[in-house]
């Protein structure tokens, strides 16, 4: 379970939420409402007050490097530090298989990053995050640049991850997607959830 207790930073919060293992919380809201800032704060990329807990372990008690592997954030516009995608993976065979499941052809893994389509890059960034088998996934518009067929593949993978026990926080603009994933939906307005989520749980 991923729990957010009064998480707040510049432009968002305080936010309380609980996402149980195997479930998905979809965050919707207008551009600039603080969705990305929230995900960045959970991944510990930006300083924020309040607390995050993963299976009751407070974030502060884990090294940031370990936290980011277990709570994996995939930005809407992921960055790349090496020339080709394959250089970003630890276990090339495993990642090839994952990429194949997401409909990325094998040749793309060895091509220069700039020559890949936005959709290919988006899916390869998901592969990069999944290679650590994270317990929580923070996905910022994971199907934004995808067509219907590849969207289906990515949603299938997200469902597989949930079945594996991962908790997912998903930023999306598509109401239908939240239904396909069986997600709890909350709307973020001016950096705050407009209704408390699962506060009882």
């Amino acid at each position: 379970m991923l729990a957010l207790n009064g998480l707040n930073g510049p432009g968002f919060g305080p936010i309380d939420a609980r996402v149980a293992s195997g479930s998905c919380l979809a965050v919707m809201g207008a551009s600039g409402s603080g969705k990305t800032r929230l995900l960045r704060a959970i991944a510990d990329l930006d300083p924020a007050a309040g607390n995050c807990l993963l299976n009751d372990t407070p974030r502060a008690s884990l090294p940031a490097t370990e936290w980011r592997r277990r709570v994996a954030y995939v930005p809407a516009e992921p960055g790349w530090w090496a020339a080709t995608a394959i250089e970003h993976f630890l276990d090339a065979a495993m990642c090839r298989e994952l990429a194949d499941r997401l409909g990325v052809e094998e040749a793309a893994l060895g091509r220069p990053i700039e020559e890949l389509s936005t959709g290919e890059r988006q899916r390869l960034a998901l592969v990069r995050a999944l290679q650590f088998e994270p317990e929580a996934l923070l996905l910022d518009e994971p199907t934004g640049p995808l067509d219907a067929r590849t969207t289906e593949l990515v949603e299938g993978e997200i469902r597989d991850q949930m079945r594996r026990g991962a908790c997912v926080i998903l930023v999306t603009h598509e109401r239908a997607q939240t239904e396909r994933l069986g997600a709890d939906v909350c709307t973020i307005v001016a950096g705050r959830f407009d209704s408390p989520v699962n506060e009882a749980g």
């Binding site: 991944a43 990329l45 490097t65 370990e66 980011r68 592997r69 994996a72 954030y73 995939v74 930005p75 516009e77 992921p78 960055g79 790349w80 530090w81 970003h88 960034a125 990069r128 995050a129 650590f132």
Partner: peptide, 22 residues
């Protein structure tokens, strides 16, 4: 300029020294 590449590396659990090496 390379902010997103550095942060991508941090997101894979790399320490800052590795991410800033280049």
């Amino acid at each position: 300029q390379k902010r997103s590449a550095i942060e991508a590396r941090l997101l894979t659990g790399a320490p800052m020294q590795t991410a800033l090496k280049g």
